[in-house]
Amino acid sequence: MNLITQVRFLLKKEILLEWRSKYAFNGILLYVISTVFVCYLSFKTTPPLVWNALFWIILLFAAINAIAKSFIQESKGRLLYYYQIASPQAIIIAKIIYNILLMILMATIALVFYSIVFQNNVGDVPLYFVAVLLGAISFSTVFTMISAIAAKASNNGTLMAILSFPVIIPLLMLIIKLSKNAMDGLDRSVSLDEIGVLCAINLIVIVISLLLFPYLWRD
C-alpha cells in the first residue's frame, strides 16, 4: 500500500470509530456550548476586544481537550497493530487530517452559537470565518504532535497543557490579530501578512511532525 491509500484507510477508520460512538464530538460540543453559556451568564455583554479574546480562549481549551485524546485514547495493543500495517507518516497525517476536520466542524458550530448568544458586530464576516478556519487548522497541527509526545510520558493531562501553551501562543497571537482585523472590517490587504505567516508556520509544523514522528512511535 502506498502512503495515500494508507492515509485514506486510517482516516476512514478514525471517522468510522468516531461516528459509531460520537463520544469525542458530542463531548466537546457540549463542552463548548456550556463554556459559552457560562461566559454569557457571567459577562452579559462584552466590548469587541473581550468578545474576540473570549472566543479564542474557549476554542483553545476545547481544542486541547479534543485533541489530547487522539493518542491517549488508543490502547497500546491497537497502536502496535497500526505500526505493523502502516507507515508512521501515514498515521500522523491521518491523525492531523482527522483533527483538522473535527476542529473545523467544532469551530464553526462554536462560532455560530457564540455569535447568536453574544450579540456583536463583525465587520468582515468572511474574513473572520477564514481566521476561524486557520485557527482550527493551526490548533490541530500543533496539538496533534504535542499529544503524541505527551502520550508517551506519564501524567499526560497536565503535560499536554504545559507543553502546548508556549508553542501555540505565537500562533494564537497572530490569529487574534487577524480576527481583530476582520472584526474592525479593515481592508483585506492589511491582513495578508498574518495569513501568510500563519500558513507558513503551519507548513513548517506539519513538515517537522512528519520528520519527527517516525522517531517518536517506536518504544
Binding site: 509526545i149 508556549p166 505565537p170 500562533l171 519527527l212 522517531y215 517518536l216
Partner: peptide
C-alpha cells in the same frame, strides 16, 4: 522524547 519536543519547539 525531550529531543523531539526540543526540535518541535524551536521554530515556535
Amino acid at each position: 522524547i525531550s529531543a523531539i519536543y526540543n526540535i518541535f519547539a524551536f521554530p515556535a
